[in-house]
């Protein structure tokens, strides 16, 4: 009973925290994109534009909810829900800080700690393709369908390299559980130094998984109609939008956990270190968005299959050899 209450409270806090972070991220991203272009970014609603996300949500809520005439209504409605579920679900596996002791209870600061750890993360994350594919298919629009096909192909391609790179991380740390990986990094070095190639591959793959610049050609607001979410309006569109920003937060949190040493750090409390490192990763994502142009579709595919996957495989091979001869343990 006690554990159930703890779990419920924890889930609620994590959920609200994550959604707040994602909502703030929509503002922070626009702010920083502004700064990267000699602009100010949104600054009309509240101080520093802080209430902009609220204004955006209110606007989305008051928009007409349009379902296309020929759409598959059930699937059309299900797709954004699935997307949001997947986005929020992956966050449950990431430990935000060292376990907290309250009144004889030891509460780990993550939603769940399954034994399969990072594998569960991969399993849930690969479901995100379904939201996109279903959304595009159910819309009965050629633009949505083509956009969702592209997105699906891209997500599946980059998941391979992501998985490969994560395996080398697992080999190095000898565990699947994120919290134990953090503990390993506390004893040794942060994995970004021990596995720089895996770091880069995972980072690039996560950018591609989340349809972020320079791999955002599935949406490409500036040139295509908008990809898989073309036919969506109002809150349903907002749910897809939220998913994307949640994905950015989760990706950054995952990078922090796996490569930047998680909550470890001197002087400051663990949770704060985690937030700072995650914020740094998010900044890099925005920075890249402000800098790089969009890849062409064939470039995207050939980069994924011909560069990222072989490098990940070689990295895995090298890691295995080093583990076998005992240089890494």
């Amino acid at each position: 009973m006690q554990t159930l209450v703890v779990l419920l409270v924890k889930s609620l806090v994590l959920l609200l925290g994550l959604i707040t972070a994602a909502a703030l991220l929509t503002l922070v991203e626009r702010k920083f994109l502004g700064y990267f272009q000699y602009r100010l970014g949104p600054n009309r609603v509240g101080p520093w534009g802080l209430f902009q996300p609220i204004a955006d949500v209110v606007k989305a809520a008051f928009k007409e909810d349009i379902i296309p005439q020929d759409a598959d209504r059930l699937v059309f409605r299900l797709a954004p829900v699935l997307s949001v579920f997947v986005g929020l679900g992956t966050f449950a596996l990431i430990p935000l800080g060292p376990p907290v002791h309250i009144g004889g209870l030891t509460i780990p600061l993550s939603g769940a700690e399954p034994n399969a750890g990072i594998l569960v993360f991969l399993a849930i994350a690969s479901l995100s393709v379904y939201g996109v594919a279903m959304g595009g298919w159910a819309s009965q629009s050629k633009y949505s369908l083509l956009g969702s096909l592209r997105a699906t192909a891209q997500m599946i391609s980059y998941e391979l390299a992501l998985g490969m790179a994560l395996v080398s991380v697992i080999l190095t740390t000898g565990t699947l559980v994120p919290a134990e990986m953090v503990a390993y990094q506390a004893q040794h070095l942060p994995l970004v130094l021990m596995q720089p190639f895996a770091f880069l591959i995972v980072f690039i793959s996560l950018l591609a998984e989340g349809n972020r610049v320079p791999f955002d050609l599935t949406e490409a607001e500036t040139e295509l109609v908008g990809g898989y979410n073309t036919e969506y309006t109002g809150m349903r569109f907002a749910m897809f939008f939220l998913t994307e920003y949640v994905a950015v937060v989760v990706s950054a949190a995952l990078m922090t956990t796996l490569f930047l040493g998680g909550w470890n750090g001197p002087f400051l409390p663990g949770l704060l270190w985690f937030v700072l490192k995650t914020a740094l990763m998010i900044f890099v994502v925005i920075w890249i968005r402000a800098t790089l142009p969009r890849l062409r579709y064939d470039q995207l595919m050939s980069f994924g299959w011909k560069v990222l996957l072989p490098v990940a495989a070689l990295n895995l091979l090298a890691t295995s050899i080093l583990v076998v001869i005992g240089w890494i343990a």
Binding site: F32, Y38, R39, L40, T291
Partner: peptide, 21 residues
């Protein structure tokens, strides 16, 4: 080239904003 591009945008981050409110 990537590093050069990222450096260019990073410098902009600290320049004066041209926006007139």
């Amino acid at each position: 080239e990537l590093a050069k591009g990222l450096g260019a945008t990073f410098k902009v981050l600290f320049r004066k904003r041209e926006t007139i409110s």
